[in-house]
């Protein structure tokens, strides 16, 4: 009897997912945040050098065009913000090529929301409120932790993440059974931070608690703005529970020129790494030129959230048809 047609999650998980979606909608309805929907197929895509996208062909002869499956709904949502939507959220599918593993499926579900006028600390309060709602009745969490990247990095490694000392980083790697980091990371500070944080820091974060890490090093700023008091760090937050990365948020960059510069930089890195070519989202740059309101935005991976709520060890246990059965 073939079993490959069956879902990899129990039917109970379908109900849990529906319940979480309903709780999220209730939460934002009560806070007057508008639910929106944006295209999954776009003319361009994020330029993040660490993300690979899917493309597909739009055929309406004689017109033929490449369209990109969105790696996140971020750009379209920012265009809505610039057009005056006010605070918005959406529950959306996102697609990232090549990502498959215990915590990854190339097609996954994101909750993404933007709060006009919110600073990062205000956004963090809201994240904690939302998590409290979603976890209540499923799993008791200990009090929320808020810690800076620098503090937590130093606590678990003794290294300063903001000042790159190749010698210190190499000595740490040699002494902590990750000596391969020396050749793998070379003199790339950002890569060292990714390596050490994901191997040696992240597993300790948020033991049965929501742990929010803020103030990422400036070299890991992505679409966040630099902190106005300390240009070595960026107004970016990541949230973890039981060592699992659940989401990422920014006090959003609103400077069109700076955004344009980061796009060019990322596209150059993509070329250098021989990653698939993407095009700059000119609509986003125009939207920023027209004026993105001061806002903070957050994305939470809902499949991983469901893993935590149901105590599942793999993402396949919360998806009905992961990529190998899709």
């Amino acid at each position: 009897m073939p079993t490959e047609w069956q879902p990899t999650c129990p039917i109970e998980l379908l109900r849990l997912r529906a319940q979480v979606f309903a709780d999220i909608r209730q939460f934002f309805l009560a806070r007057a945040v508008l639910e929106v929907e944006t295209p999954l197929l776009g003319n361009s895509c994020g330029t993040d050098p660490q993300l690979d996208f899917f493309t597909t062909d739009y055929c309406a002869p004689p017109l033929q065009r490449t369209l990109f499956l969105q790696t996140s709904p971020e750009f379209a949502m920012k265009r809505l913000l610039a057009a005056g939507s006010g605070c918005i959220y959406q529950i959306a599918k996102a697609f990232r090529n090549g990502e498959s593993g215990r915590f990854h499926n190339p097609e996954f579900t994101l909750l993404e929301w933007y709060r006009v006028g919110f600073t990062l600390p205000q956004l963090m309060n809201e994240i904690a409120d939302l998590m409290a709602v979603l976890f209540s009745g499923h799993r008791a969490l200990k009090p929320t932790q808020r810690v800076s990247y620098q503090t937590v990095f130093q606590r678990y490694t003794g290294l300063n993440p903001l000042a790159f000392s190749l010698q210190d980083y190499c000595a740490y790697a040699q002494a902590n059974e990750v000596s391969e980091a020396v050749s793998l990371c070379g003199s790339d500070h950002g890569l060292w931070l990714d390596f050490i944080f994901s191997h040696k820091v992240q597993p300790h974060l948020g033991e049965n608690a929501l742990c929010m890490v803020y103030g990422y090093p400036a070299c890991q700023s992505s679409l966040a703005r630099l902190n106005k008091d300390n240009s070595h760090v960026t107004d970016r937050v990541e949230v973890f529970i039981n060592g699992i990365e659940l989401g990422n948020g920014y006090y959003e960059l609103t400077d069109a020129k700076e955004q344009d510069r980061r796009f060019d930089e990322e596209i150059a890195i993509r070329q250098q790494k021989k990653r698939p070519v993407t095009v700059k989202d000119k609509h986003l740059v125009s939207a920023l030129e027209a004026g993105l309101p001061e806002c903070s935005g957050m994305a939470i991976g809902l499949d991983r959230l469901l893993m935590l709520l149901s105590n599942s060890a793999t993402i396949n246990e919360v998806l009905n048809f992961p990529v190998h059965r899709a």
Binding site: D48, Q50, G190, E238
Partner: peptide, 13 residues
């Protein structure tokens, strides 16, 4: 094990 920070380099442990 596939290890990937959302905004970072993908590794295999």
């Amino acid at each position: 094990e596939f290890v990937k920070p959302g905004k970072g380099q993908a590794f295999n442990r």
